[in-house]
């Protein structure tokens, strides 16, 4: 009892030890325009160093194209007049929309299937011990096969075309969705489920009314990871046997050693991946705001 009182006092005194402002807690949080400014300034500094290094010959343009050259290539990719299609040649100039549309289409279809399969599967694994015991070992074994190792079998099954790419996107996106959904469903506090039952909620409504909303913040993380992994998988799939798409374009550029085109492809890839992630976060935000710290 006495010991507890001493500890209690020590706990209260901590504020005084640290001083009225609490030195430990004085690291100010970076918010608003400051945060944006710092986020823009750092890449700008890197870009400047890069430009100078390229201009002075410190960076060989054979291995690292100069920013100005990249900007020109990027402009060509987007706005240059389109040439007549040549069979067997993957176009670059003015072909941005065509390639992006092809890649995003494969991504979207594969991801949609992954969500439709992954959410119910994850919920089932999180809710049913029997299902988890039966499916978990097999699922995690299959999940550990890297996406590149799926490419040969995808090509055999689906041939050269959209099917293989969509399948690869599905494989890449489905496992983080399943894992995050199963895990966050299994962690839903029992108290919430008990309360819902004691309030008269029918057992068959529990998944939809309690487990799903309670697990949603974790599920959204899985959806975001799946989206990014699916996008990566789309590009991997396009490196082989596709006549359109960002991956196919980059592979064609590699064959003729157009480093600038490869880097522009990478940048496009990054921008679209980021946009997709921001989109999913924006859509999910109103539903998971309750869980913000």
């Amino acid at each position: 009892m006495a010991l507890r009182e001493v500890q209690g006092d020590a706990g209260l005194d901590l504020g005084d030890v640290l001083g009225p402002s609490g030195e430990i807690a004085t690291r100010r949080r970076l918010t608003g325009w400051r945060r944006v400014a710092v986020g823009l300034a750092f890449p700008a500094i890197l870009l400047t160093i890069w430009s100078v290094a390229s201009a002075t010959g410190l960076l060989s343009d054979r291995l690292f194209p100069a920013p100005a050259d990249l900007a020109r290539t990027a402009r060509d990719f987007v706005v240059a007049p389109k040439r007549l299609p040549v069979p067997g040649v993957i176009p670059f100039k003015g072909a941005a929309v065509e390639h992006i549309r092809a890649s995003v289409g494969r991504w979207g279809v594969g991801y949609a299937i992954a969500v439709c399969v992954g959410l119910p599967l994850g919920l089932g694994l999180g809710l049913s011990r029997w299902m988890a015991a039966a499916v978990d070992p097999l699922f995690h074994a299959i999940r550990s096969v890297p996406i590149t190792a799926w490419l040969p079998i995808a090509l055999v099954w689906f041939g050269l075309g959209n099917g293989a790419a969509r399948f690869l996107v599905f494989i890449g996106a489905v496992s983080p969705i399943v894992v995050a959904t199963a895990d966050s469903t299994a962690r839903v506090p029992r108290q919430l489920v008990d309360t819902a039952r004691m309030l008269g909620t029918r057992p068959r409504d529990l998944a939809r009314r309690v487990y799903l909303p309670s697990a949603l913040p974790g599920i959204v993380t899985g959806l975001r990871l799946g989206l990014t992994l699916g996008w990566t998988s789309a590009i991997v799939a396009e490196l082989t046997g596709q006549s359109s798409g960002l991956g196919a374009m980059m592979n064609a550029a590699r064959e003729v050693t157009r480093l600038d085109q490869i880097v522009v492809g990478m940048a496009t890839f990054a921008v679209i991946g980021l946009t997709g992630d921001l989109l999913v976060r924006a859509i999910a935000r109103p539903f998971v705001r309750w869980a913000d710290a």
Partner: peptide, 17 residues
Amino acid sequence: PSPDRPMVVQGATLFPW
């Protein structure tokens, strides 16, 4: 369990969302 005899425990049992 039944809504005729609900239980309230220490700590919140409200639905946080």
